[in-house]
Simulated assay, not measured.
Amino acid sequence: MKIDDKEEVLTVEKATYPYPPLWSFDGNLLLYQKEVEELVNEHKQTSNQLWVYDMKTKKHSKIFYDGRNPKWSPTENIVAFSDGGVLNVSDFKKFYNIALGVNDYEWQPDGKGFIASSSASLRPDGWTNPVLYTISIANGYQNIGNLTKNATEFFVIPKEVVKDDVKVPSINAESFAYSSDKQWISFFVTPTASWAMDSDMLCVISVDGKEFEVLDEVIWAFTPKWAYSENLLGYIAGGGRIVFGFKNKNLKVTEISTYHSINLTPKNYAEMDFSWVNDSSLIVSRVKESEWSNDAEKRPKASLYFLTLAGQKQLKITTPPKNKGDYKPEYLPSIDKITWLRKSDFVSAKGDLWVADIDGGNANLWIRDIGLYTFSPSE
């Protein structure tokens, strides 16, 4: 952990930490996932342990021996996670089963339940539909005796979702995110695993389930992001994984529910990531369009650009060295700064963390040679 210029080592034993750590809503607790190899019946098995670090007591607590997809409650210090399709909630003393057959989920903004999906199943006559559910824990998560009683069918996703001339079979629904006014939910509809690397559909649905819309073809490697206080959804549109070329990756912003979209990417460029600065401006990581090369030095290197929606002003704000690129921009509202990773290549696991003003001024190297990271909600 680094606060200003002071660094502190939190874990003593070296291990594989496959996902970014997750801060609780109040910034007092930090959840991290540790990959551990164990011998089970003389066979090596890999488990994904869930741990919580308490910032005040400096103590580490293992909350589950092999959990997946953990998410903090938005209103209290409890954690949801999945294990073999079972959705659970932990209060760090015990864990409680909440629902069965869950593929992906997200906490509802009030912390009193979840939006969740079940995957389509393959049967002799074809695939079934993926289904969205709401799951309530309004009466408490500790005493749920019937794991199906609190689940309510919310929306049945069509067996195939279509946008223009692209069709994707609906197998899974994933990566749910609520709009700032909590009235809309964005999510991906994805096909089978290998296909999903190249073509998914970004969709939105109203919280009453009455309005469902397919927005665009995307790939799951790029996360859509809602604006801070307007119903504007930013996303990088275009199918095809990056190893097929640095192309067909356009930053779009769509207003919900008029579904009016604007494309902010100029011709002959492709976007690698972005961050909202406010409801009318963004920072993007951008490269010149290029074919993929197995030689990392020949791949295009990204620079950061500042964009505005009104007038579509576009200003290049970083110029990295020839052998480096600037990726993963993130705006920190509390200090009015942008951060990014400067690294050798888009696919590189590690880089140097930089911080600067939103116009790129006063740029400084903050942390050298880091991989997965996250900022405290107070930063």
Rank of each mutant, 00 (worst) to 15 (best):
W127F: 09
G351V: 14
R342M: 14
D110V: 06
W195I: 01
D181F: 01
D104I: 08
D208F: 09
I236V: 00
K2R: 01
T152Q: 11
F154Y: 13
A80L: 08
M201E: 08
I283H: 03
D357M: 05
L365K: 15
T16A: 12
D26N: 07
I262C: 10
K288E: 15
V287R: 10
P74I: 02
E230Y: 02
E330Y: 03
N294H: 14
K324Y: 03
D66N: 07
S376I: 11
S303N: 14
S90H: 07
A99L: 04
R241Q: 15
D295A: 15
G126I: 07
A270H: 08
W292F: 10
A15W: 07
T223H: 00
L307F: 08
I78G: 08
E35D: 03
K288W: 15
A302M: 13
S257F: 06
G361E: 11
K94D: 14
W276Y: 10
W72E: 07
K159V: 07
G360F: 04
I283V: 01
A349P: 13
S344N: 15
W340L: 01
Y373W: 01
K163M: 10
F176S: 03
V166P: 09
W51T: 08
V162T: 11
W276Q: 10
S90L: 03
W51S: 04
P321K: 10
Y141M: 05
N248R: 00
Y373K: 04
I144P: 03
E217S: 14
S73E: 07
E160R: 05
S303F: 14
R368G: 13
Y228G: 15
G360L: 01
F176T: 00
T16C: 13
G245P: 03
D336R: 15
V79C: 14
K249N: 00
P109T: 02
W23G: 05
Y133E: 03
L100Y: 10
Y133C: 06
W220E: 06
D357A: 09
N103G: 12
V243Q: 14
F176C: 05
R68M: 04
E271F: 09
S180Q: 12
K328R: 09
K167S: 08
L10S: 07
N172P: 08
G126L: 07
R299F: 05
S303V: 14
S334G: 01
S261P: 05
F25V: 11
D110C: 06
L50V: 07
W72P: 06
D279H: 04
Q49M: 08
K267T: 03
R241T: 14
K298P: 10
S136M: 12
K14I: 13
S376T: 10
L304I: 03
S61F: 15
